[in-house]
Amino acid sequence: MRCSPASEIPPTPEPSHPLVRRFWGYVHSFLKRFSVCCCRWVRIPFDNQIIPLPFGLLLKWSDGTRLEEVLATEVCRAAGLPAPKIISYGEHPDTLHAPVSILMTRLPGRELGQAYESLSPDARTTALTEFKLYLSTIRGWKSPWGDERVCSITGGAIRSIRVPNHAIGPCETPQEFHEYLLAPAHNSFASEAVHQEKLRSARKLQSLQRPGVKFTHGDIKHHNILVDEEGHITGFLDWESAGWYPEFWEYTTALRFVPKDFWWYEFLMKAGAERYLEESKCERALTSLTADSYSW
């Protein structure tokens, strides 16, 4: 770790003017076509969502890319986290499924999931220590939107693949948040008894929620963390789901679908996820009741 992250959240920058964003949208469209030609010429795979460019740059233009991701990335970089540097961001009103593109720097290092098995024990300890510090720092930030409001960094709706229709909020109270999550619940089980047990478990989640909201990455996965050979974290990627969530959300999101015999599960346990195992169990019940609403 090169420096300690800020203990207070930096101000959220003002978005650029819509006309400026439209201009950069045209530039980014050209860069995408340029990348397609270059990839064909040098015979390397072309990624339609994380578009490779020369000079250490990437163009992200995916289904989840929104203006809030730009602002969250800029805030976290300003706070000292190893987030990409935003060069420009453009709007594309003709592609409603992917209305924003982001030109950013490519960060050094390898994905933690690719590197972990080859890291030395000391390097693994370094990665865990820095991971815990970064998460504890952003979770200690105070929300400018109040202690209960679940919202994005701008105070508006959050985009997350974990919620119905991939969008939620802003929710002014925990009750509103949990009611929204549970609203699409339906019985797809073999018996009514199983259905009722799942409902009881899912409803228990609200009673387990601790007071307050925490600033949350929202999609902590090992492929969104970059490390060097010594285990230092060189990159935190993909802030598209970042915002103010209930305390458990960061860890229960990271634990989703992770088998207990996988190294990432143990890593998360050591990082603090063991405090949220009951919440994780309730979330699995919630998912089984509402998964059909997580449509693209």
Rank of each mutant, 00 (worst) to 15 (best):
residue 1 M to N: 07
residue 6 A to E: 13
residue 6 A to K: 12
residue 9 I to T: 06
residue 18 P to H: 08
residue 25 G to I: 04
residue 27 V to E: 06
residue 30 F to T: 13
residue 32 K to Y: 06
residue 33 R to L: 13
residue 35 S to M: 08
residue 37 C to T: 12
residue 50 I to K: 03
residue 52 P to M: 07
residue 54 P to C: 09
residue 60 K to C: 06
residue 69 E to S: 05
residue 71 L to F: 06
residue 72 A to T: 05
residue 74 E to C: 09
residue 74 E to W: 03
residue 81 L to F: 15
residue 82 P to C: 09
residue 82 P to K: 02
residue 86 I to S: 05
residue 87 I to M: 11
residue 96 L to I: 14
residue 98 A to G: 00
residue 100 V to D: 01
residue 103 L to A: 05
residue 105 T to G: 13
residue 130 E to I: 07
residue 132 K to E: 09
residue 137 T to I: 07
residue 138 I to Y: 05
residue 138 I to Q: 02
residue 140 G to H: 11
residue 146 G to D: 10
residue 151 C to A: 11
residue 154 T to R: 14
residue 163 V to F: 12
residue 163 V to W: 02
residue 166 H to A: 11
residue 172 E to D: 15
residue 182 L to F: 13
residue 184 P to A: 06
residue 196 Q to P: 04
residue 199 L to A: 03
residue 207 S to T: 15
residue 209 Q to M: 15
residue 220 I to C: 11
residue 221 K to C: 10
residue 224 N to K: 10
residue 227 V to S: 00
residue 228 D to I: 10
residue 231 G to N: 05
residue 233 I to N: 02
residue 242 A to C: 12
residue 245 Y to W: 14
residue 246 P to C: 10
residue 260 K to I: 09
residue 262 F to N: 15
residue 264 W to A: 04
residue 273 A to T: 06
residue 273 A to V: 06
residue 274 E to P: 03
residue 275 R to S: 14
residue 277 L to T: 02
residue 278 E to Q: 15
residue 288 S to Y: 04
residue 295 S to D: 10
